[in-house]
């Protein structure tokens, strides 16, 4: 059995990818499962989806906690989640990034597994015109773990999305061809903890709050939605006339004003929606790629 975990952001087609992978495998005569992980987070938030493929009937309903393959659709997700958590020793990490596998492995400090990388953003922009990377990343995945055949997947894409199938197939094929793979025998699958607070001390029934009451007003500030961002607002303060529209229209209250009436983005919470840049009458703010 091959177990795959996919990381991306809400709205990037992570769940659809897992589903297409499973349906393709089933059409190939295999047995497969795909399932999402549900939470309150919305478009832009890190999300995961899962896929299992086997030659035999799969009866387990357990979550996938020790995956054979981890696929990361959006490089900025690596800041927010521990993508390698639970990856099987000798497992495969497939990431959308402009870095080479060696560079990524060094950056993440991972070893003892196979690392595959592909610049799916560039490929998606080239063939689809938008940075929608889910189909490209399926190509990368199939390169390192052929759980389904390309032909079947192409057929499925043509059937499901006739209008955009061709461009997606081109992106998928390009990603398949361009994916670089390297195996790292030495080291352990670990990843530096990037501020992500691991919840280890969950309350017991004796210590949990009465009636689920939240006693700390505004305690959501403990949750850093800056991790959701794939584009960031960049400020050219010299042009700013301090009109305050960016501040007013920010749905996150993530723009602060200091004593000099200078407006500053709080990148801990900015989700990168781009409203401030769009609404700024003086072109002070521009949105730039987060990973650049």
């Amino acid at each position: 059995m091959i177990e795959v975990r996919m990381h991306g952001r809400g709205g990037q087609g992570v769940v659809a990818s897992a589903e297409m992978l499973a349906v393709s495998a089933i059409r190939d005569g295999k047995y497969a499962q795909a399932f999402p992980s549900f939470g309150p987070e919305r478009r832009g938030a890190p999300v995961v989806a899962f896929c299992r493929v086997d030659d035999h009937t799969i009866i387990t309903r357990e979550p996938i906690s020790v995956p054979d393959v981890v696929v990361v659709l959006d490089p900025t997700v690596l800041r927010a989640v521990q993508a390698t958590a639970g990856l099987k020793p000798g497992g495969k990490l497939v990431v959308n990034t402009c870095l080479r596998p060696e560079e990524l492995a060094r950056d993440l400090g991972v070893g003892g597994c196979t690392v595959a990388t592909v610049d799916a953003n560039r490929i998606a922009l080239q063939f689809i015109g938008q940075a929608i990377t889910n189909t490209a990343m399926l190509g990368a995945l199939l390169k390192v773990e052929p759980v389904a055949s390309l032909e079947v997947l192409y057929g499925l894409l043509r059937e499901r999305f006739p209008a955009v199938a061709d461009m997606n197939i081109q992106a998928l094929q390009a990603a398949y061809d361009e994916t670089s793979v390297a195996e790292f025998v030495m080291g352990d699958i670990v990843m530096g903890d990037k501020r992500k607070k691991l919840v280890t001390d969950l309350p017991t029934w004796r210590t949990i709050d009465h009636a689920c009451i939240v006693f700390e007003p505004g305690s959501s500030v403990q949750y850093y939605t800056g991790d959701w961002r794939s584009m960031r607002p960049d400020w050219n303060s010299e042009k700013c006339v301090k009109c305050g529209k960016c501040w007013m229209y920010c749905p996150e209250a993530a723009i602060n004003v200091d004593e000099h009436r200078d407006y500053k983005v709080d990148y801990d919470y900015c989700k990168g929606c781009g409203i401030c840049a769009e609404e700024c009458p003086y072109g002070v703010i521009v949105m730039v790629e987060e990973c650049e």
């Binding site: 969950l202 309350p203 017991t204 029934w205 004796r206 949990i208 009465h210 689920c212």
Partner: peptide, 8 residues
């Protein structure tokens, strides 16, 4: 959290 809340 749900099970702990219901248990309480």
């Amino acid at each position: 959290y749900f099970s702990e809340i219901k248990k309480r």
